[in-house]
């Protein structure tokens, strides 16, 4: 039997980790136990996300979960493929997804990485979670807000709102102690980080434009595998892609999560107004474009491809 080591940065409690275990089980089944995937969750191989392109290129690990957003240093063009503000309806995500996948597959192959399907991240709701009732951009102007990327800092800055990148692990403390007044966060999973304990009010802003997590295989490993085993990997990867894709947009899940948060004492305010949403989107798109341009020709090209398709979808 052949065993492949698979790196993932997700903690074992995350649904993505469960998907990886399912993938491993399916590969085992398809190959009749001849090909095994040994998943190392939570970065336990000691590898860190920004290095993964280099690491796979050199074949230091067999497989890894590739998450385009992380590669600002080594492949800025890949980090700028998709960004917040790109979509305003969850369904749009599913329409744009094939294009995004194509760009990533091409980009990763330039690093000598074979891509075989992956995990479509669920389209969660993104909300603004505050200590006070806030559901308009005007109210946010006097507040400090926690965000997760430099694109978002730039976007909020264009709306005269002071934003700061704070890692998810420090978010609770930052709200508790008042370093920030609000957090821009995935409402659907806010409970897992106990956000309701430090921010009692929430208002819906837009759906999460989630970069898919692709399964990358190093060229060295790919070269060593038999045709049968390659086929097994492709089939299992595609299976995970379909399976997670089908579950990505789920209004029932979103509604249940919302009710759950209300039962925890969160006051859910009216959504941000349409006007606010489009102001935010405009600012986010400009910020996205700036990042793409900084990434050079390839970045600009990727940005143009994705936004053209988005334009068609929006129309």
């Amino acid at each position: 039997t052949t065993t492949l080591r698979f790196h993932s940065g997700y903690a074992e409690s995350r649904p993505e980790a469960q998907h990886l275990n399912d993938f491993a089980a399916y590969v085992d089944e398809l190959s009749g136990g001849e090909l095994k995937i040994d998943v190392f969750h939570a970065g336990s191989l000691g590898l860190s996300e920004p290095d993964m392109l280099r690491v796979l290129q050199r074949g230091n690990v067999d497989m890894a979960l590739l998450y385009g957003e992380y590669y600002t240093r080594d492949a800025p063009a890949l980090a700028a493929v998709y960004a917040q503000g790109a979509i305003t309806e969850p369904g749009q995500h599913m329409e744009i997804l094939p294009i995004i996948r194509e760009i990533y597959e091409e980009g990763f192959s330039k690093w000598g990485i074979q891509t075989i399907g992956g995990i479509v991240s669920p389209v969660f709701s993104v909300g603004i979670h505050c200590k006070e009732p806030i559901n308009s951009l005007a109210q946010l102007e006097r507040k400090a807000i926690r965000v997760w990327s430099s694109q978002l800092v730039d976007a909020f800055d264009r709306l005269s709102i002071s934003a700061e990148v704070i890692p998810q692990n420090d978010m609770y403390m930052a709200l508790q102690t008042g370093v920030v007044d609000c957090a821009y966060y995935l409402s659907t999973v806010a409970e897992t980080v106990s956000l309701h304990e430090v921010a009692e009010y929430e208002a819906y802003l837009h759906p999460w434009a989630a970069v898919p997590a692709m399964f990358g295989v190093s060229q060295q490993t790919w070269g060593r595998l038999s045709d049968d085993h390659r086929q097994v990997l492709i089939e299992a990867g595609e299976y995970m892609w379909e399976k997670t894709g089908d579950a990505a947009v789920d209004p029932v899940r979103e509604q249940a999560a919302r009710e759950r948060r209300e039962s925890l004492g969160v006051t859910i305010l009216d959504d941000f107004s349409e006007e606010d949403v489009s102001r935010f989107q405009e600012a986010a798109m400009v910020a996205w474009q700036r990042i793409a341009e900084r990434a050079g020709d390839e970045g600009t090209r990727n940005y143009a491809t994705v936004t053209e398709y988005l334009q068609e979808i929006h129309d």
């Binding site: 920004p50 280099r54 600002t72 240093r73 080594d74 492949a75 800025p76 430099s150």
Partner: peptide
């Protein structure tokens, strides 16, 4: 040398590395 070749820059401020 590899970072020089791909013109690697820092995440936030784009400092040449």
């Amino acid at each position: 040398r590899f970072s020089l070749m791909i013109d690697a820059r820092s995440d936030i401020s784009g400092i040449l590395l």
